[in-house]
Design a protein around this nucleic acid. Structure first.
Lengths: 193, 193
DNA sequence: CGAATTTCCGAACCGATCGTTCCATGTTAG
DNA sequence: CTAACATGGAACGATCGGTTCGGAAATTCG
């Protein structure tokens, strides 16, 4: 292989697929290597451990999510639609990523620390985005928010509240309706009457 | 518990859900029992082994499939739509059940024998259904089939042929288009011109 | 071409996991 | 109260799975 980084990327992509289906624990190095048509021990030439692959995958997915979110915001004009798009994409993505978190919540675990690191960094970014969305809507006269800082935090709290049952519940059938409910609540409390 | 059979049914339902997601190997007795809010060893009061649960689940799913197929046929009138519905539901269901088969194809295995038993019985049923569908379409002047017996077998062979990559390939994106292709092939060779 | 370096893998190690058994305890029916 | 039913904690033996190690292939370079 000419480029070692390129192969690391292929491992991440493949592992991501398997992790997202089976979670961290149930995914074996054997499976990852088999999907790459390589020997089990060959993977260790590129990553020191299974955990390291997992970390790389989570980082990759986080960047993926970030990109999806920015495009979701850009593709509509009105502040209301921007916020709506943002929340929908965010929750949908988190539903997809819930397997990673299930893996983490499974038992022990030391990932917890790592996840929390990613998490807190992402939380700050999210807060900034929400604040911006609120601010723009405000100055355009669509929203009516006094303290965009605290309102953003309140919205984020609601979103986080919606994450929890995501990792508990069996069915995702009512995610959409719950999302709609939360959105209408947010908007009715936010939209200028 | 008043009814032991009722509880066996609950176990089957729960196990079915987990099996269909993780396959036989990756599903643990621990998980099944936890989902039922029971101790791991309690399950053994109702089933002698993990394999026995698996067999019960497969039988249950087979009956489920049979019911879906008959309703799929009944809900439309024209023979062409009946056959189309049948094939669609059949292939979709098999896609969903592919996890079971993946579990079987995983390693060893003695399930193979059991699966084959179920399988051959089901094959005969399917052949009868196909033959009937062809016969009805024939007598209504929609199809033009000489030997419904052998034509049914030919169609079944095609369907079986479509199953194989189901258990290989990574993506199911093109299942629909492949299904359409097969259908149009079947119909253009069958419909009265 | 040969040597150096990169890439790959089979085999083995060993701790963790998993299916199953055993037994003691709780629960219900008569 | 007793007997049958139902439960789950603990332990066991087998397998699995992540990781290491040594060296074979393959590739690159002089």
């Amino acid at each position: 292989m000419v480029d070692k980084e390129e192969y690391r990327r292929r491992i991440i992509l493949t592992a991501s697929r398997i992790f997202s289906h089976y979670g961290f624990r149930k995914t074996t190095m054997e499976e990852i290597s088999r999907a790459l048509h390589k020997g089990k021990s060959s993977i260790y030439y590129y990553f020191a451990s299974k955990e390291e692959i997992f970390e790389a995958v989570v980082l990759y997915e986080a960047n993926q999510l970030r990109r999806q979110l920015t495009t979701a915001i850009k593709e509509v004009e009105s502040p209301k639609e921007k916020l709506r798009n943002y929340i929908f994409v965010r929750m949908k993505s988190f539903a997809k990523l819930s397997n990673y978190y299930n893996a983490v919540f499974d038992k022990n675990l030391d990932h917890y620390e790592f996840i929390e690191k990613i998490r807190s960094r992402y939380d700050r970014e999210e807060l900034a985005i929400l604040r911006l969305l609120l601010y723009v809507g405000n100055s355009r006269g669509v929203f009516e928010v006094r303290e965009s800082e605290y309102t953003a935090m309140a919205i984020q709290t609601m979103l986080k509240g919606m994450e929890v049952p995501l990792f508990w519940r069996r069915r995702e059938i009512d995610i959409n309706s719950r999302l709609e409910a939360v959105l209408s609540l947010i908007f009715d409390g936010i939209l200028k009457r």
